[in-house]
Design a protein around this nucleic acid. Sequence first.
DNA 1: CGTAAACTTGAGAAATTTCAACCTGCGTGG
DNA 2: CCACGCAGGTTGAAATTTCTCAAGTTTACG
Lengths: 250, 250
Amino acid sequence: MGNPFVRKLGYGARLTDADREILEAVCTRTRLVRAHTDLIQEGDNPRNVHLLLEGFVCRYKVLHDGKRQIVAFFVPGDICDLHVHILGEMDHSIGTLVDSLMVEIDPSTVEALTSNPRINRALWWGTLVDEGTLREWLVNMGQRPADQQMGHIFCELLLRLQAVGRAEGDRFTLPLTQQELADTMGVTVVHVNRVLKHLRREGLVELNGREIRIPDVRRLRTFSDFEPNYLHLRETDRDKGPAVREKVPV
Amino acid sequence: MGNPFVRKLGYGARLTDADREILEAVCTRTRLVRAHTDLIQEGDNPRNVHLLLEGFVCRYKVLHDGKRQIVAFFVPGDICDLHVHILGEMDHSIGTLVDSLMVEIDPSTVEALTSNPRINRALWWGTLVDEGTLREWLVNMGQRPADQQMGHIFCELLLRLQAVGRAEGDRFTLPLTQQELADTMGVTVVHVNRVLKHLRREGLVELNGREIRIPDVRRLRTFSDFEPNYLHLRETDRDKGPAVREKVPV
DNA sequence: CGTAAACTTGAGAAATTTCAACCTGCGTGG
DNA sequence: CCACGCAGGTTGAAATTTCTCAAGTTTACG
């Protein structure tokens, strides 16, 4: 399937073969992390950076009364906390949702990566996309009714997984329980269940166990008011940095 | 009142007097922007970075059906989009809420600032705090009922304004209409109005026109489940960077 | 086969929206 | 100086969305 990290950063900058080799090299020494394990918790002092190669991870916060809000998903290729060491302590936790394959990147390696201008640009790009996604989630929760909100999340995940080769056409594995979906959307499990039923009845999604299929992506996008611009996956001239450009196939 | 920009960045890194002078120098050549003016809109290609010195600005997105979600506030000292030029085009808009005093910083000046290690660290710190704030807003919308959510917003604003010397004790000017508050919270104006009435009746806030006072901050914090850690305003040793540290008064 | 977690469903309660009206302060043109 | 108009604020009542509680049912798996 190819290295998702290399693949993802390719959207953020025009990498050379040498750059790609550097990134590949970072991905040796992987570690398998069991499902439902925290990589780091609120209050901890972060040291290493986590890179996800396979699996599914989330950022979340827990309130005093035990309620939980998931504030981000990580899919293969995503880096968890590139620069958090600047902040004294974590203001949220990060945990796996399923068994995941991770790489721990130590500060000196991060330093080495960011000293490469193209890789640095790509990492910056990733950070800004994370922020854009957070904004879109806020819009999603604030302005869209639960059914559209859920459709929007599915559209986003499909696209992000496709971008790193982890979706097969219009289907992918959604390794979330309804409770976890509820914690993402800020609604009840019961409500998630009913909304899901609604989407199924409408033929907007097919969901069997962990396998989800979106039979008509365009229709779900329209239904959910999904605009993928915030993921910044489209090549633009400005994106790719250096003034001199090679010819690329469309 | 002092320069809010210098003051804010002081929370992110241990600046020298020379650093502070550099930052002050950036703040000459100010520009007055009228209320309800967009600095930049979704789809635009950003060039300059905007620094807010006085006033009140917000980030927002507008949906196809015209609904609007405000996703961030900027208060004096905040920088609007430090590195967005890496993304091809804006995925949201930025507009003033009241008459505001701004500085436009061109790319070469940004370059100069980020080449200073302490200032660079402080700017990074600001970016990470922005992200933390976004996460907290998501938690706020997803998990808290409207009255707590509103209280939480007031607690945050009070603290942020105090940090840059724009609050007087327990009071500050809240230059938002109820509609704008509604667009921030993801609820209706009508509901905002009723929630506000509730908070007033409980004695949690006093709001006359644009002037808001929080008579008992501790009480509102408890009520709203407000934990200021995500703003990272507290000094910690790690925060301040260089290994060699001078003695500082507690 | 038994058990726990995940999923599903129903019914009543609560939060929030919608629609519609009315009030207030304030600036502007007559 | 007054009348008008308008943006912002306030309130009521009914509709809708979402929650809570509570009880099944199904699924995964040792």
